[in-house]
Amino acid sequence: MFEWIKENSIAFSIAVILHLLFIGALLFNWEFDKPRQIVLKQGDIIQTTAVDANSFNSKIAEIEQQKKAQQQRKATAERKAREAKEKKRQEEKRKKAAKKQAAQKRKEQAARKKELQRKAAQLEEKKKQEKKRKEQKLKEEQRKQAEKKAAEQKRIKEARQKAEQEKRQAEEKKRRIAEQKRQAEADKKRQAELKRQQQREQAERERRSKGIVNKYVGLIAQKIERNWRRPPDTAHNLQCKIDIVLRSNGQVISAKIAESSGNASFDHSVETAVLRASPLPVPADSVIFKQFKEMRLRFEPGSY
């Protein structure tokens, strides 16, 4: 708490000032709210009347004096009546005022009492507030303490969790790598298996078609051999290879020397043999024919 105040000294000062101002204001208010009363004293009224009597005794005309006196009498009577009346009224008024004043006084006393009570109550309240605030503050401090503690615990917990997570992640990664490796090996194995399977199937197909292939290879070799006229003056140890491409009807599309014998006449005789033998006997089965579509022919005079 103290640390907090220290850290937030300005804010705290402002809060304290505000509180003081508030308390001051409450006290001032109480002063303002006091009703303003005008206290009239009896003595004042009598004096005024005395002033009027003096002016009446001044030196004025005779005729008129009578009249005036009469009038004055009358007036005085009237005035007296009036004054009496007034006096009575004033008395009543005074009484009333007194009464009122008494009431007022009572009222004021009541108000004062009430104010005192209020003030007391306010004080009480203030005390209560203070207490409450203190309690709150304490509570707050306790709460903060608790929070702090909780935060600390949380931090520790989180750190622990983090460590655990990292550990877990590391393990996961390790596991994943191992898994990948295993997967790759499995793929490889599967691949190899697939390849073996492929080879088995290929071998099987070949076994099935081998008879046919052999037959046509023989027919092709024989037909070309029948058409192979070698130049008379070429050596018997020559050899050449020619790549040929066939149409499905056995017609030779192209015949290109792949490996020359070194003897142009010999090479030419081989090309001519292939072209002369065209179309070559080929299997009708389009799948088997695929093996015949492109062929390499090796020519050699053979021994004799």
Binding site: V217, I220, G302
Partner: peptide, 9 residues
């Protein structure tokens, strides 16, 4: 690619 041997001529 099928390799066919042609001997003789």
């Amino acid at each position: 690619v099928l390799e066919v041997e042609i001997k003789g001529g």
